[in-house]
Design a protein around this nucleic acid. Structure first.
Lengths: 220, 220
DNA sequence: TTAAGTTTTTAGATTTGTCTAAATTTAAAT
DNA sequence: ATTTAAATTTAGACAAATCTAAAAACTTAA
């Protein structure tokens, strides 16, 4: 079955909201898609008749098994294209999202699988997010504090618990943001400070207090 | 300016018909796009108001300078993606057209230019058709008889003048069709027969009589 | 040169995805 | 337990791209 780019975007966004929030609401989805709640309701009805969504009006909704499958394929395409753009076409990791938003709607299954092979079956995208395999299985990634990250494991920043301007100023200065890929090279037991490597940068040092507030994901 | 995939397809198809036929008619365009003449008229009006088309009703039409520019960018994208699919993702040259029909509508200009560089600035696609450069300039290609093709020059079959079943049977057997990329490796002056290389195949031999009826294009 | 035939255009409808404004249902607060 | 507020859905409309059927304009051939 083939779905319109618009429907694919709905499925994908519902999937992401489900992951984060557990429950998805009409308003949250409208906000995420930058559209009106009325439009969302319209689309939900269509997705329901196509059995992509479990939905009763006023009662909330979530993806059906089929809807989840479709969403994961879109996410797979999005992330593989991002890898391609960064690794092969030498884009910066911050500029690939927008382009991948278009590429993810190219339908050919064979294209995606050839691309996957061409890229040598990557398991994470340039932001550190896991790439579902051809069957929609996502490599298990768990979110841990940077303080607990083992040495020499590449991980991606996925959350910053202390969002104060002071913390953000510090992180911006060090070159750390959401999605930054990094690796601990040394832990100093004297004060539990860490020395990190970040893609294409000089090693940097951060305190335990900072590390505690930075959460990262990494492959199992 | 950004145009819908549908408009881009109209512009591209008008361009191709202009090249082949000189004049484009509503019916011919409808046939080429597999749509109704009425739909074509509707779209022509829209393209005219956007100044992409010179068009007076009942008086025929052709692309404006701007329309031509847009068409050439689409064709550029189409052909570059075809090169990518064949050279990098190892698709067969006969299966890439359909996928490139989708990829050609991805909008990012930067993407196309990076892709061009990644592919090392190819001048023809896997079918032997010339690829417009970033300014929309097409490398000059002239059509010549295979008999007159110099040795060791890669060329693409673009026309077969004798379309008899006997000729086609022979060519099919040898693995030659429209778009086949080939190269003469040896000319025998005894009978003017030719030894050819075709992508991924064993060398083959054809008679002068066959060569005379096969037309090829190659870069200048 | 006028009647017949072909091509092109108009008229009116349909589908998809969207909108605003208004109504309805659920949730919260007194 | 009402009232008020918030979230959600309906109603009605619109733009893009398409369709069919019918009208209008061009072409051609007797």
């Amino acid at each position: 079955m083939r779905y319109s780019p618009s429907k694919e975007n709905y499925l994908k966004t519902i999937f992401h909201l489900q992951e984060e929030e557990g429950v998805v609401t009409t308003n949250a989805l409208a906000r995420a898609l930058d559209t009106s709640p009325a439009s969302v309701t319209d689309m939900l009805k269509k997705l329901k008749t196509q059995k992509l969504l479990l939905y009763e009006k006023y009662k909330g909704f979530k993806l059906s098994l089929e809807g989840r499958k479709v969403a994961l394929q879109i996410i797979r395409k999005h992330r593989l294209w991002e890898v391609f753009l960064v690794e092969k076409l030498r884009f910066g990791w911050e500029e690939v999202h927008e382009i991948a938003e278009e590429l993810e709607h190219i339908s050919s299954k064979k294209l995606v699988d050839h691309l996957d092979k061409f890229l040598d079956f990557p398991t994470t995208d340039p932001h550190g997010d896991p790439i579902p395999d051809a069957n929609g299985k996502i490599p298990l990634i768990k979110q841990i504090s940077l303080r607990d990250l083992p040495i020499n494991i590449i991980a991606a920043v996925c959350n910053i618990s202390d969002q104060s301007p002071e913390m953000l100023e510090l992180l911006t200065h060090k070159g750390i943001g959401l999605g930054t890929k990094l690796e601990i090279k040394k832990k100093f037991s004297f004060d539990n400070s860490l020395e990190l490597n970040i893609r294409n940068h000089q090693p940097i040092t951060i305190s335990e207090n900072v590390a505690r507030n930075v959460f990262v994901t990494h492959e199992e």
